[in-house]
Nucleic acid binder design. Structure first.
Lengths: 104, 104
DNA sequence: CATATGATTCGACGTTTAGCTAAATATCAT
DNA sequence: ATGATATTTAGCTAAACGTCGAATCATATG
């Protein structure tokens, strides 16, 4: 759990997560959104993987990353509960209705 | 806003916030809960202050720190909303019924 | 087999961070 | 003024971080 906050502490990684919210994307596709080198992005992916916030699906020579929303949600929930706060899925807005199945 | 996540990335600082959840505490009082030196704790307080997550009230030679829960809540809310999540105050548990007024 | 492609790993560099001790500052009490 | 208390500032070290270019691995294609 502590690695989650570490992972969230970098703005590039937070933006990666938000890009992944809409749909899974390949490493190169994600990297195109940032002004940093591929190796740097790869390092960011590794941090996010270590925190279990994303998962990698390798097909051929491309690697597709997808968000593990439930992990993010649970980490946030656990933390906020200690402050009398709650994290829930917002039922009103449904930004990602056909998200791929998540390995929970 | 970005400094909030940075501040949350350290376990010591997260624990400080949680200690402050119950009641405001002085710097020394807080420091007693950790196995690090006072100067180190002072540095942590500064990071939390910079992120606006805590406020300092100096009285005499003691400094009392208090949690700014609304700032934490708002930062979390802003971030989670991009993922279709919501952060709310949990009405069931009332851990700090007579908390001092917060400068919102 | 040779080459191109998608992505990672490796090694290095500069910066930031957390940690320490020692000293300084500020306040209060005697 | 002296001494004690609470906290910070200053100066330092070691480790971690983000970044890069070059090299490497794996897979696909001519």
């Amino acid at each position: 759990m502590p690695s989650v906050f570490r992972a969230l502490s970098d703005p590039t990684r937070r933006r990666v997560l938000q890009l992944l919210r809409t749909r899974p994307m390949t490493a190169g596709e994600l990297a195109d959104h940032f002004a940093v080198s591929k190796p740097t992005m790869s390092a960011h992916f590794n941090v996010l993987l270590a925190a279990d916030l994303i998962a990698a699906d390798k097909v051929g020579r491309t690697i597709t990353y997808r968000l593990k929303l439930s992990v993010l949600e649970e980490a946030l929930l656990e933390f906020t509960q200690a402050f009398g706060l709650t994290v829930t899925e917002a039922p009103a807005t449904t930004p990602n209705p056909e998200a791929p199945a998540e390995d929970t």
